[in-house]
Structures are given as structure tokens and as C-alpha cells.
Design a protein around this nucleic acid. Structure first.
Lengths: 137, 137
DNA sequence: CTAATCTTTAGAGTCAACTCTAAGTCAAGT
DNA sequence: ACTTGACTTAGAGTTGACTCTAAAGATTAG
């Protein structure tokens, strides 16, 4: 079975080897095997697991909570409900994050328009009489 | 003209007064006026400006870059182009963030299904023969 | 007038998530 | 055999964004 070194995995996942060792220290990689000499041997499945970790991280989940999830995985079938619940909760979180980004986008679009108009006029003065416009910007 | 104290503004924006003072220290509020005694007097427009700061922050922009933007605002019409470009860039960033969250959501949905199936079967064993399934979870 | 509750500052402390250093071991090429 | 580069560890250092403390001054309610 093909295996990968820490720097190969780091490259593949666009993180540093430092980061991967940090994750290991924090207990996120209890499954990664080693050579006699202590060097890590990453399998394809280990990389897949790291991608799930990346996924959780990108929802804003802190390392310690991800660790809890990894521990559940190690504990086996008795934790299936917790793990299901966790992913359902993450789903709700991501839904909220997308909704918030869309609101953020509205303000940004508004500002783009604001500055386009000012730029065409050569001055921000053009917005002096706007209804509920924001004075400072 | 109605003004607000720091704790009123903090409540309104769902941040602490500490945070607002920190933003001030970092130069994000050069426009907020003071009483003789030194107490801050927030105007409606100051709150609106803070909402723009919140917006930029929620796109992941660090405080120091937001400070640069505030400085541009202070500099007047000569920086209109930079400010327009900045918001266009933020727009692109937010587009990417939404796209990434959608990819994240795909994996999460997949995991929800995975655990639902396992939960119904009472064991993760049910996924042993999945095509490209992830062994550890 | 007084007590309680703001507010102010400078500066120290916290926290998460890296990021790096030092000293040593291991592996690959010539 | 030797050099170069990648790997290991424990532990220290960094960064960003707060978060709080202490000591002082200001404001409000009774």
C-alpha cells in the first residue's frame, strides 16, 4: 500500500508540516502509523481523514472540539448518535454562515456602487444628500 | 443631535466596550468625538461606520487593513480609486468564501447521510464495502 | 452629599492556532 | 563514507484579537 511522508501530505493539503505535527500533538491523528524509526507513514485514508478535519475547521470548529469528534470515532458504534448530531449541528452553522456572508455581500455591493458613483463624479460630495447615507465613507 | 455612550453602542453592535476601545486604540475610530471630560460621544453615523467595520471584519479582513481603509477615508477624494478597488476585492473574497462553504456543505451533507445509514443499521460496519469511503470515520 | 455606577487610560494577560528552534536521527545520492 | 536534506521531539516564540486590571475621574439616583 502506497504511503506518504509528512511533507508530501502537507503539500497535498496546502498546509505546513508544522501544522500537521501540531494536529498530531493535539490528538487529531491517532491512526497515522509510523516506521520503526518514528517517521509518520500517511495512507490515502489518513489524507481523507485530514480532509474531514479541514472541513470541520472551515466551519469554525476549534481544534479541541474536533478532537472530541476524533475520540468518538475511536470509541466506535456507541458514539454514532453524537457524531450524527454533530454533523447536523455543523450543517446548521454553515447555513448561518452562508446567510451572514450574503448579508455582508449586500453591504459590499452597496459600497461598490457608492464608490463607482463617487469615482465617476470625481468626488464623494455627490453623496452628500443621500437619504440614509453613511457620512464617514 | 442624539449621542450614545460606549456601553450603549457596545450593546447595539453586540460587542463589548473593551472591543470598541481596542478598535479606537488601533485607529479605527478617528472620527468619534469626546466630551470635555474625555468621554466618547457616538453619533448615529459613528455607529453606521462601525457597521461597515464589522462588515469588513466578517470578510476576514484583519484590523490593520481596515485601518488602512479608514486612513483612506480620512484622506478624502484622492483615495476613491483605492477604496473602490478594495470593496471590489472584498466582493471577490466573499464570493470565494461562499463557494468554499458550499463545498464544505457537500461534505457535511454526505457525512449526515453516512451517519444516518450507520445509525439505522446500528453499526458503521454497514459502510465497510462503500466505494471510495473513508475508513476512519 | 454620597454611593453606586459609569467612563477613562496604560498596560498586562489570555487564548487559539500556529510557527519555529535546537538537537538529534534517518535516508538517499555520489 | 560522507554530505545533504528530510524527519523526529520538546518546548519556546509569535500573532491577532481581544479581555481584563488598576487607578483615577465623571455622572446619576436618592
Amino acid at each position: 500500500m502506497k504511503t506518504f511522508s509528512i511533507s508530501e501530505v502537507a503539500k497535498e493539503l496546502n498546509v505546513t508540516a508544522y501544522t500537521l505535527r501540531y494536529y498530531d500533538k493535539e490528538g487529531l491523528m491517532p491512526y497515522v502509523e509510523r516506521k520503526e524509526s518514528g517517521q509518520r507513514l500517511f495512507k490515502e485514508s489518513d489524507i481523507a481523514a485530514l480532509k474531514v478535519i479541514e472541513c470541520l475547521k472551515s466551519t469554525g470548529m476549534p481544534i479541541k472540539e474536533i478532537k472530541t469528534f476524533i475520540d468518538w470515532c475511536t470509541d466506535g458504534d456507541s458514539t454514532l448518535q453524537q457524531r450524527f448530531d454533530m454533523f447536523m449541528e455543523r450543517k446548521a452553522v454553515v447555513d448561518m454562515q452562508i446567510a451572514e456572508l450574503k448579508k455582508t455581500m449586500e453591504l459590499i455591493d452597496h459600497k461598490c456602487l457608492y464608490y463607482k458613483t463617487a469615482l465617476d463624479a470625481g468626488t464623494e460630495e455627490i453623496h452628500k444628500n443621500d437619504k440614509i447615507e453613511i457620512p464617514h465613507y
